[in-house]
Structures are given as C-alpha cells and as structure tokens.
Amino acid sequence: MPPLPDLILEPLVRAALAEDLGTSGDITTRTVIPAGTRYGARIVAREAGVASGMQLAAIAFRLVDPALALRILCPDGQAFAAGDTLAEVEGCAAAILSAERVALNFAGRLSGIATMTAAFVAETRGTQARITCTRKTTPGLRLVEKQAVRHGGGFSHRFGLSDAILIKDNHIAAAGGIRPVLRACKAHASHMMRVEIEVDRLDQLAEVLEEGGADVVLLDNMDAATLREAVAMTGGRLVLEASGNMRLERIAEVAATGVDYISVGALTHSARTLDLGLDF
C-alpha cells in the first residue's frame, strides 16, 4: 500500500521524541560522545517478520537531525529474515543515538502487528475470507497500528465511531431489540452510511434477514458449525463477519465456513513487539 504523507505521521513521532528527550535532551550522549563524532549504524532484525513502522523510524531520525543520511532497505510491507539489515543511517553519532529508541519502538511495535497479521492471513488462503482489525488499538496510535495491519496483508474495520453504524449487543438492549434499532437506521441513517449489526444466535440472524436494513452482520462467538449454518441462511444477501475468540489455530476452520471477514482484535491489542536492534 502507498505510504501515508509524512505530514500526517510527524506529530506522532514528535510527541514520542519529546517524551523521550524531556526538558534536558539526551544527557548521556551529550556527556560521553565528543562533539562532531560521526558514525554509521544499521537497524537489524533479530528475528524474521514483516516490516512496518520504517517510515516512522525514518521520520524520527530526520526530526532529530535532518542532515543524517538514511537508507531504508526493507520498506513497510516487505518480509525479512533474521539478520537482515532493514535500514542504514550515517552522520552525527549523537543524533543517531538520541533518535534510536523512538525509531526502534515504532518499527518493533508495528512490525510485530504486521507479522502477526501475515500469520493470520496465511491461514485464509484458498478462501474468500479477509482478516480485519478492530478499534482495540493503543490510544493515539490507531492510524499507524491499522496501517501495520494493512502492511501484513489484512484489512481495516471502521476507523472510529464516525465511520459507520455498528450496532452491538448493548445498543440492541438499550434500544429495545433488533427490529427497533434496524428501523431507526432505516428512518434516520444516510443512504451513504453502511450498517452492521451484531448477533450471537441464529434466531437473531433470522430476525435481521426478515426485517432488513443491515448491510453486514457480525456473527459473534459462534462455532464453525453455527457459522456454516449462518452462511447458508444468508445465501449471499448480506456480508458476514465472524468475530470473538479468533485465535490463530482456528482461523483456517472459520475461513472455510464461507464468511467474508474475520475480525481479530488481538492483531492490535496483543501483538508481540518484534526484536529489532540498532548496531553501530
């Protein structure tokens, strides 16, 4: 996928650098590195994965010192092996050291998300199912975490509450049932707005199909047999999304039921940070 404009990403990186540098800057580097010292360094993968966050790492180095010479060897979305060099940077040693942790934090965290996503996507091969993330993201980092999912071959669910109508179980309870919420959507929602409704039983799905007014049905916490029955009941009339307890070991079985999407909150809330290092 094409990179986002640096202008959009810079505020995230600036905030991270300001948090790290504080009010006095990098006092360790300033104390022990002679002024004018120049060096070269590499970002190296300690394990295999899929790159993400390299654009943010580059921004971190440039913000600390625009004179640094930086070369990205493994762009976002590209797979790499353990021991591969992902980027090279050369110039003021103090600047490299001051930007190092922020650059690696972004690249390691986001590459972890992309790598986990790629593993889930691999389990759907040969089916129509797409892996998608959710709003279970780190506050303030949703944009780049969802971008990392895309780098891993996944897709994004709605970005925020203002993107689409997603009627969850608590909405149904508070509004008085499935039919009232769907009728409210038909009466008030823009014709440009997609509507998704969550069900966890087949009788609820039957009610949605009878009432109409939804574009997508979220099949929550159903086993594979029930998902297959839901697909058969729907007959292609609505988009179906499976969710709830979507562990890697059951993705192939879920994808084979014929659902269109599988949403996995763990992609952004539980991905392990990938081990990347900066070597002088």
Rank of each mutant, 00 (worst) to 15 (best):
E211P: 01
E229K: 14
A35I: 12
V217S: 01
A224W: 00
M116E: 11
T134I: 04
L97P: 01
R179W: 04
D84Q: 11
G265Q: 09
A35W: 09
I131G: 00
L202F: 07
F61R: 02
E19Y: 03
A82T: 11
G126N: 04
G22H: 12
L70I: 15
I96C: 05
E145D: 13
R130S: 09
D215W: 10
R194I: 06
T257Y: 06
L202W: 08
L7K: 13
F159S: 06
N105Q: 10
K136T: 04
A173E: 10
G177C: 08
R38V: 14
V254C: 06
E19V: 09
V144K: 02
R14Y: 00
D200R: 13
V32I: 15
T37H: 04
R150C: 14
H191L: 14
I8T: 14
T23V: 15
K168H: 03
A214W: 08
D6N: 12
L97R: 10
A271F: 06
F155D: 11
L4A: 09
N105L: 12
N245A: 13
L104Y: 07
M192N: 14
A57E: 10
L12D: 06
A114I: 01
A252D: 11
K146T: 05
L4W: 04
A214M: 08
L205A: 07
G83C: 07
R272I: 02
T115D: 06
E123F: 02
A122P: 05
A16N: 01
D84H: 11
G213Y: 03
G49W: 04
T115I: 04
C133L: 02
L219Y: 05
A57D: 10
R14L: 13
D76T: 03
A230P: 04
L110I: 00
A118W: 03
G212K: 01
E198W: 02
H157M: 11
D6L: 10
E198Q: 14
G22V: 12
L161R: 03
L68G: 09
A271L: 06
A107F: 02
E207T: 14
G277R: 06
D275K: 00
R150L: 15
P180C: 12
E198G: 10
Y261I: 14
M1T: 13
S263K: 01
T85Y: 01
R194A: 15
A184H: 12
A214F: 10
I8M: 15
L219V: 00
